[in-house]
Amino acid sequence: MFDNLLSLMPEIGLAIVQTGVMLFISMCCAVLFGIPLGVFLYFTGRGQIFERPVLFRITNYVVNTVRSLPFVILLVALIPLTRVMVGTTIGPVAAAVPLSIASTAYFARLVEQSLREVPKGVIEAALGMGATPLQITWKVLLAEARSGIVLGITLTTISLLSYSAMAGIVGGGGIGDLAIRFGYYRFQTDVMILTVILLIIFVQIIQFSGNFLARLLDKR
């Protein structure tokens, strides 16, 4: 029953690497753009120090829209953008473009939520000491919400892992794609089982390290 697996070993190895590439690129983007976006949503929101109802509503709307599109649709809709950005529409790097956009929107929302948990009084106390908005962002908001943000990264990574299964549509490859191509279309149950086990292990590792780090950082 496991004879498929041996011959597929190189494919499986490649799939793991492809998943790694997709996750790495899109998580870098999520952190790089999602944090500023989350901070922006937080500050411009209702009752906050830089309340800007119109700007907030537009940004909020864009983030919601990205989040409400089924990932497959986003993947296909973004093909022209992907071509402009990476020169090709196939492969894990190309798949990372829609993945990055989806994960940035998702993570930004999680960042915004964690920032809301910082008591307003703490921010006021810092304002009263003469802190600049930038100092408040770094030294108060992000520093106080850091364990929530780590959990947000964990959650986003796990969502990405399942999104990345659809990357096969644009030839992105990866573990999920392997499961669909061999396990589903060719009825190779052993491949299906192996990929599922791999995915379970990955999710466990990500969740466990995320929880561990969050606990380590949380002094509240």
């Binding site: 008591p119 009084g121 703490v122 106390a125 009263g128 000491m129 509240r220």
Partner: peptide
């Protein structure tokens, strides 16, 4: 910076 303030609920940085 030359006006200190304290509050009922302290508002210390927990981390």
């Amino acid at each position: 910076r030359s006006i200190g303030m304290i509050f009922q609920h302290f508002y210390l940085l927990q981390n």
